[in-house]
Design a protein around this nucleic acid. Structure first.
Lengths: 347, 347
DNA sequence: CTGAAAGCGCTTACAG
DNA sequence: CTGAAAGCGCTTACAG
């Protein structure tokens, strides 16, 4: 491997001059620049990342802490990872992907060894044991997902409360009076999935304000249990004309369940989901939905992180929570409710 | 940040002794060990990764080159990534995830800068522009996926030819004489997805040997086009009693298509897929399938890579192609064909 | 068994 | 504008 010493020698300059040409930090004469560039080309020189990191305390690597939990839906997670990864590369950073179960320990390891310039935490829980580590770390970090205590942290998330309200509004305006919200199971909430109740509570409140009945049901986070949960929920609430599906696994299973009963949306039941366009495409979901925007959240998170890393006073600027406003993507699965005498959705 | 110098000072030893205790490379007295360990604890010392990499030329990071192509099914890809990532962590390595479009350039970048000790290439094509870079690189690499010219490379892959034969055998033995293979579209093959024709050609040959009719159809790699392709294929071949579904997107869409026509498997049509158990779970696929074993392939690949990295003569050992034997997982979607007079599967 | 010294390949004040 | 020198934090022969 060629070193910068080799480059300097071939170019006939000192190592510091070669370094200055390559970094562009100091002005150098065009002639010198040309000589150094030629030397780099002939030698096929690439700076040694470890040596550079040692000298500058910068690695140009961002740590990405993902969590693949059994009770969450892996394909949805992938989209966040890709969103972060793509934006990082655009800004000149590589991604160290950490998917191990013990995220707190992993975070400690990669920050204290200075392997990364900063970190992005995905799938943040209400009480997340990674946050104390992050607060004590020597590198900045941003979260995707709102924890219970976001103080001193940069947080990006979908506005789940507004999402809940929007879902209810949309169906209420179309004339629906009997709604069913398909949510995540209780243990997701207990484990810290605060987004679940943020959406649910707001939906319930909005329904109350509008004098609409909103029932809530928890469905399993994976196949095939989620299908059974959906069927049971429809049986239990035959008057329902509108479905709010916040649970992504349930959304993926819904076409099967509706077809089983000969139901069509929006003819027999109106459906509003909460998932990304990419997710809809992967699972052939024909439902109107609130876009969950994983790519945009990943992008915002990385941009903010890079600002903290690179801007001189970036580390000290005020932290805050930034919500993405939910947007409804119409895929034609909602309409006026079927007439009251039009039978039931129970099988 | 504490350095090893601080540790040495607190422990009252020299830096080299502290280093030796931590690495375990040289024998040290128990008392000294204890003193050093205590100093590490009180200071919260973690070695600086860059400095260590510079001194040892080892980073304990493995580069993972993924490719997310529009014409392949992203959720299937995730499983390989997780397989590699989990095994790497078990062996003490972190993962640098590279998902950018220009894989060859990325590979050049991470190897020549010595950011990684080795690389795993996913989704390798028949003619893959990353391979020349890998052959010229100063770090070892292993592939998941068989290229046209595997010389000088470590390759792991499912035995697609045997997979094709096994699928045909399984249905032929049950009495099926009219089979349909749902494959990938031509442009996947042209781009270099050799696995497509490896499976197809072997299936065709096996069918010929057994005197069974095997038709082949290409289906789109994503929703919703794949559904239309499946419907058209069933219409075009009404005599078919057995489906071999190698295309993962087609497998995910098949339940919808069959239900549309009131078909059940195995009553009306027998189905054998090729996908992982995890994939089956995610998409609620009730089909007997050849296990594609992404986790196992990832594990084998990483183990081999780490062997090359760590064993003294590991770099020089003979390279080779290792196939995983296909295994059929029975999910009850195959049986004897319906009687010849039993109607057709066309809608 | 322990320690002083050199070296890994960069960058960056600093002096000229 | 250019170069000699120091330093980043480790590891590792080498001498004792």
């Amino acid at each position: 491997m060629a070193t910068i010493g080799d480059v300097a020698q071939v170019a006939g300059v000192s190592r510091s001059t070669a370094s200055n040409v390559l970094s562009g930090n100091k002005r150098t004469s065009p002639e010198i620049q040309e000589r150094v560039r030629r030397a780099v080309d002939t030698l096929g020189y690439t700076p040694n990342a470890g040596a550079r990191a040692l000298a500058t305390s910068q690695t140009r690597v961002i740590g990405l802490l993902a969590r693949f939990l059994d009770d969450e839906f892996a394909p949805a997670m992938l989209q966040y990872i890709l969103g972060v990864s793509n934006t990082a590369r655009e800004l000149g950073y590589d991604i160290l992907l950490v998917s191990e179960a013990d995220g707190a320990r992993a975070l400690q390891r990669i920050t204290s060894s200075l392997m990364v310039d900063g970190v992005v935490l995905l799938n943040v829980a209400e009480r997340d044991d990674r946050l104390d580590v992050l607060r004590g770390a020597n590198r900045p970090g941003v979260l995707v997902g709102l924890p219970g205590d976001p103080s001193g942290l940069d947080v990006f998330d979908l506005d789940f409360a507004e999402t809940g309200r929007l879902m209810v509004q949309h169906l209420a305006r179309l004339g629906h009076r009997e709604l069913l919200l398909v949510s995540q199971p209780d243990h997701v909430v207990e484990r810290g999935g605060a987004y679940v109740w943020r959406l649910r509570d707001a939906a319930v409140e909005e329904a109350r304000l509008r004098g609409v009945t909103l029932r809530t049901v928890a469905a399993a986070p994976s196949q095939p249990e989620v299908g059974a949960d959906l069927r049971a929920a429809l049986d239990a609430h035959p008057d329902v004309t509108g479905l709010l599906v916040s649970n992504e696994a349930a959304a993926a299973a819904l076409p099967f369940v509706l077809r089983d009963r000969g139901l069509e949306s929006p003819r027999d039941v109106s459906v509003v989901g909460r998932f990304s366009a990419e997710f809809a495409r992967t699972f052939s979901l024909p439902y109107t939905s609130i876009e969950s925007a994983p790519d945009r959240l990943g992008q915002l998170a990385v941009r903010q992180l890079v600002r903290r890393i690179e801007s001189p006073g970036g580390r000290e600027e005020a932290h805050g929570v930034r919500f993405i406003s939910p947007e409804l993507v119409d895929r034609g699965s909602t309409g006026a409710p079927r007439p009251a005498d039009g039978g039931t959705i129970a099988g």
